[in-house]
Design a protein around this nucleic acid. Structure first.
Length: 851
RNA sequence: GCCGGAGUGGCGGAAUGGCAGACGCAGGGGCCUUAAAAGCCCCAGGCCUGUAAGGGUCGUGAGGGUUCGAAUCCCUCCUCCGGCACCA
């Protein structure tokens, strides 16, 4: 929009009517009931018109796949804090439809999960019953917001029609060795009574309930996400339409490290123990080997030790600590000498083998070589326990000599044949030598761990495996899917998973030998459900396959995904993993499920305690949507939520500020009604294609097109307010060209439609237009007309603003200079000065530099 | 510690090398009204100066740099938010 102000004239000011009530009596905005009835009318119309329906099976169908993360059907009513992602997506949906695109925008329910099960324990209402009731309630809320979804594609993940394909995909992964059972140290949430994936125990606390997680030794089902670590990392570079923030978070989480594996001979065991190090160049400085207390060699190393019992007690103590304690910042390093020794394969020296709490069993080999001279953690440990500290890297000149432990690069020394080599070159040389001697070699490792998907809970997808006393774990054959979740499980909240008490479920026969066998009673992590749901939307009724690959080839991957940042690692990483697995299974042809990702910011609000924090029911700062929409109208609430600020940033909700967008919409209704009273519904055409008003109209179209393309909904509302002031002026101006006025009104309604769909449709209809705004097209602009005829350029003298000149568009440097010299305010700064140069930016600025 | 993002009026924010503060909230003045509410119009970053119109000057976390010109680009630093973190 132009920088200078548009005339701020309301409909009353320039008209002859006396100022008074803004709205003509009888306006539909007057009565709440009437306005609500009109909202219902248009919501019903969009349903009747099948406005959001897309025939994905039509072989010629193609278009934009716009997706919002599927919600969990909670029993609480959705509040303002939830609404932003849906309003934003709907504005985009409508804009794209107006542009003439075919847009597929479905909705569904992430319906499995703990709250429904806990509700069953507390209130005795079966999970399926409460979940379906919650879905019905949420759907009703969506209907009242005027958001468009293709409900014919609705997916509910707790229904067997959906979860049987979780089971089917799991079985394919079993076949590929990507799903496997492993005993290991796992995260246990004592409050949720289940194990958790590493991603759900970030920072040592349960992602759902925030309880500190405990470590337990259990045998569980895992998915081999680590197999794809490199691909998941490399793929991030291609995701240019994802925020750098999310990509950085995933990179951190995957945690790639380049280094080397090295084998150290352990005479006592008669075998080698392998360590992983990122600094093989410091191997001559290794003065100890340190094992995680969980390392499998520990019991054998302790054999025959005089204080074996005490040492084993110490190991037990470390292992029983929860992760929060053990990994806390500044946690005391604690270790014990095993009494055994290892031989450094490069220096040939004997080094003591220690155990220590800071060495993690799950990372690398669970064993390290300690180089106290060049690693701060080893340095701290060695200082505490009197382990020798040896420097084998000479610091570069000018390096800070006061640093006790140099961890940077340098020149190798006291390293035998490698002396004088740079540390960078030494890393490669040592790794290569290790490979040559068959004792390790260069190695890349990742922080990422395999995805633990077993859950000791009822309300999830049953894992389709059978434990046979004779055959071991046997997959359920495809033709016996789905393994149905029994409806009659006893919910006591005690004694573990209710499935264990359902005999009819538990008892089965072995698919292989036919003997008596037991079903797996663990269910799948609900993140499995959301890892591929976006494909099921495209073909939700398919009962022969999870989806038809031909449909997927036309419509996937998702063009634009919208959701909160809280899934930056969890859901988004799992879905990227699943896409890769499905590609390897030949089901899809892409690796990245979501071509573009938009993360909307949270809505915050002042809590009763005076803090501004995320809006939520539990913090007591939630604003209920239902009464707000009843009072202000869905359009006003939408407009305000979108006006709050940049959609990617957090935005503070204040109850007062809704007044601005609300007044804006009232004014639009008022001047359109005024137009109808003065001009009626007759179709009229502008007299001149390039009048100043026509130019303003073209400018508005250009500006709003740009705003919506850029997801800049808050500036879109601001620019619509500006344009509406202008249109109000036209409506109230008896001299204005009626054809241009009508064109401007209709343009405003079309541009405003994505924000305020109900009232724009209603006014558009009252203007005599018969087709819905959704199908009547987005206004177009002519770039040649989307500019003002005359421009105000800034006149600077030596870079300081001294005046302004109004010039015809395209005025030359000479014309601008002449105009500048004619301004007294400018002339006085030029007088008696020598001109050094003149900078001229056409249509913007003239800068005369003087000395 | 490492990685990512952000600091602009009383407030939300706009401007991505070219008139800082668009649009709105709250505020002040006016109109309308018996009055109020609602609505409409106008004003509105700080300081200095002037009876006024106006003029001057400073100003986008701090300091420096590049440029005719910097909120915007570069360097150093500070603060805040988010992620990872005893990951060898």
């Amino acid at each position: 929009m132009p920088r200078q102000r548009l005339p701020r004239r309301g409909v009353r000011q320039s008209g002859s009517r006396r100022p008074g009530r803004l709205l003509h009596s009888g306006s539909f905005m007057d009565a709440r009931e009437e306005r609500t009835a009109l909202e219902k009318k248009w919501q019903a119309r969009w349903v009747a018109d099948r406005a959001a329906f897309v025939d994905t099976h039509d072989p010629s169908s193609k278009g934009t796949y716009l997706l919002v993360m599927l919600p969990y059907p909670s029993g609480d009513r959705l509040h303002v804090g939830h609404a932003r992602t849906y309003f934003l997506t709907d504005a985009l949906h409508r804009y794209l439809k107006q542009r003439g695109e075919t847009v597929f925008c479905p909705m569904g329910w992430d319906a499995f999960g703990l709250p429904a099960e806990n509700f069953a324990i507390q209130r005795g209402i079966p999970p399926r019953e409460s979940t379906l009731a919650n879905i019905a309630a949420m759907k009703e809320q969506f209907d009242g917001w005027g958001v468009l979804y293709d409900w014919t594609k609705e997916v509910t993940t707790c229904e067997p029609e959906y979860y049987r394909w979780n089971q089917w995909l799991f079985l394919r992964m079993v076949e590929k060795g990507l799903a496997y059972r492993k005993k290991g140290t796992v995260n246990w949430c004592p409050s949720c009574l289940t194990v958790l994936a590493n991603e759900q125990a970030e920072g040592g606390t349960c992602e759902r309930c925030k309880s500190p997680v405990e470590q337990r030794e259990l045998e569980q089902w895992f998915l081999k996400i680590t197999e794809y670590a490199e691909s998941l990392l490399a793929g991030l570079d291609q995701l240019g339409k994802w925020s750098e923030k999310v990509r950085a978070m995933q990179r951190n989480w995957i945690g790639r490290s380049v280094g080397a594996d090295l084998d150290f001979d352990v005479p006592k065991l008669g075998e080698k123990l392998r360590v992983f190090t990122t600094r093989p160049d410091t191997v001559f400085g290794a003065t100890a080997m340190i094992l995680a207390p969980e390392h499998p060699a520990v019991p054998r190393l302790l054999e025959g030790h005089p204080e074996r019992a005490a040492l084993e007690e110490w190991v037990k103590g470390v292992r029983s600590q929860d992760r929060l304690q053990r990994e806390a910042e500044g946690a005391e390093k604690d270790g014990r000498f095993t009494g055994a020794y290892a031989v450094n394969p490069f220096s040939g020296e004997e080094m003591p083998i220690w155990m220590a709490n800071f060495v993690l069993a799950e990372y690398g080999t669970g064993a390290i070589m300690a180089v106290p001279g060049h690693d701060v953690r080893d340095h701290e440990f060695a200082t505490k326990y009197g382990i020798p500290i040896r420097e084998v890297i000479l610091r570069p000149e000018g390096a800070d000599a006061s640093v006790a432990c140099w961890t940077g690069e340098g020149t190798m020394t006291a390293s035998g044949p490698y002396d004088g080599m740079s540390s960078e070159a030494g890393r490669e040389a040592i790794a290569a030598e290790a490979a040559k001697r068959g004792i390790g070699g260069a190695r890349v490792r990742y922080r990422l761990r395999d995805w633990l998907i077993s859950r000791q809970r009822y309300w999830g997808t049953p894992i389709p495996m059978v434990k046979c006393p004779a055959c071991g774990w046997v997959p359920v054959p495809d033709d016996q899917l789905p393994v149905l979740l029994p409806k009659d499980a006893p919910f006591t909240g005690k004694g573990g998973n209710p499935l264990e008490k359902v005999e009819a479920f538990l008892k089965t026969s072995c698919p292989r030998c036919g003997g008596d066998a037991r079903r797996e009673t663990d269910t799948m992590d609900t993140f499995v459900d959301s890892s591929w749901y976006y494909l099921r939307y495209l073909d939700p009724a398919n009962d022969e396959a999870p989806f038809d690959p031909a449909v997927i080839a036309r419509w996937a991957p998702v063009t634009q995904y919208v959701g909160g940042i809280e899934h930056a690692i969890l859901h988004l990483l799992y879905a990227r993993f699943f896409a890769r697995v499905m590609k390897d299974l030949g089901l899809v042809s892409f690796e990245e499920p979501f071509a573009a990702l938009f993360n909307q910011g949270m809505i915050t609000r002042m809590s009763p305690g005076g803090r501004i924090e995320k809006m939520s029911k539990s913090r007591g700062n939630a604003v209920s949507l239902d009464p707000l929409i009843a009072a202000k109208g869905a359009d006003a609430v939408r407009a305000y939520v979108l006006f709050l600020g940049p959609p990617e940033s957090d935005a503070e909700w204040t109850d007062e500020q809704i007044a601005g967008p609300e007044r804006f919409l009232y004014r639009v209704v008022a001047f359109v009604e005024a137009y109808l009273r003065s001009h009626g519904t007759a179709p009229l055409v502008p007299r001149s294609p390039d009048s100043p008003a026509a130019r303003k109209r073209h400018i508005a179209v250009r500006t709003l097109t740009h705003d919506f393309d850029a997801f800049s909904f808050h500036t879109a509302v601001a620019h619509l307010m500006e344009f509406s002031h202008h249109v109000a002026g036209l409506v109230g101006d008896a001299e204005a060209d009626p054809g241009e006025t009508r064109a401007s009104v209709l343009t405003l309604l079309a541009l405003l439609h994505p924000i305020a769909p109900h009232l724009t449709e209603e006014l558009h209809e009252r203007m005599g237009e018969t087709r819905s705004l959704l199908v009547s097209g987005w206004p177009t602009f002519d770039p040649a007309l989307a500019v003002e005829e005359s421009v105000t350029i800034a006149i600077q003298v030596s870079g300081k603003l001294r005046g302004q000149a109004v010039l015809p568009r395209g005025a030359t440097r000479e014309e601008a200079l002449a105009a500048a010299e004619g301004l007294e305010a400018v002339a006085k700064w030029l007088e008696g000065k020598e001109r050094v140069k003149v900078v001229f930016v056409p249509d913007r600025l003239l800068n005369v530099v003087v000395k």
